[in-house]
Simulated scan of single mutants.
Amino acid sequence: MANNTLLVPQANAALDQMKYEAAQELGIAIPQDGYQGNMTTKDNGSIGGNITRRLVQLAEQQLAGK
């Protein structure tokens, strides 16, 4: 029961792309089938933290007018 509903459903593809880019930068392999249940909590948390940092950085740049 995920409560993380996207306000803009079209953003799902962009978030997935960010997930794969973040994992690649961190050297974490995401299974080809997309199922992350067998990945460690540390790896999933690292990917999520990296995505959050990127989203905050993008928002700061938008607010600064860049």
Rank of each mutant, 00 (worst) to 15 (best):
N50R: 14
R54K: 13
D16I: 11
G65R: 06
I51H: 01
N38I: 02
A64P: 00
I30Y: 01
G37C: 04
L63N: 10
L15K: 08
Q57F: 09
I28M: 02
E21Y: 01
A59W: 07
A11N: 09
G34L: 07
M18D: 10
L15G: 03
Y20Q: 12
K42R: 13
Q32K: 14
N12D: 15
L7Q: 13
T40F: 03
K19A: 15
N44V: 13
A13H: 10
A59Q: 14
G37F: 04
G48Y: 07
T5F: 08
L7E: 13
Q36P: 00
K66C: 02
K19G: 05
A64G: 02
G49C: 03
M39W: 01
E21F: 02
Y35A: 11
E60Q: 15
T5K: 12
G34T: 05
G65S: 07
T40C: 07
V56E: 11
Y35P: 00
A11Y: 04
E60W: 04
Q17E: 15
A23V: 03
M1W: 08
L6E: 10
A14C: 04
R53W: 04
Q32D: 14
A13D: 15
I28W: 00
G48N: 15
L7I: 09
L26K: 11
Q57S: 15
N3R: 10
T52P: 00
T40V: 05
P9H: 07
A64L: 07
P9F: 06
G48L: 14
K42W: 04
V56Y: 06
G27S: 06
R54C: 01
L58S: 09
Q17D: 13
L6Y: 12
A22P: 02
Y35E: 07
Q24H: 12
Q17N: 12
K66M: 10
Q24N: 14
I51W: 02
R53H: 09
N3T: 10
A22E: 03
L7P: 02
A13T: 15
A29S: 12
I47N: 00
L15T: 03
Q17L: 13
N3D: 14
N38T: 10
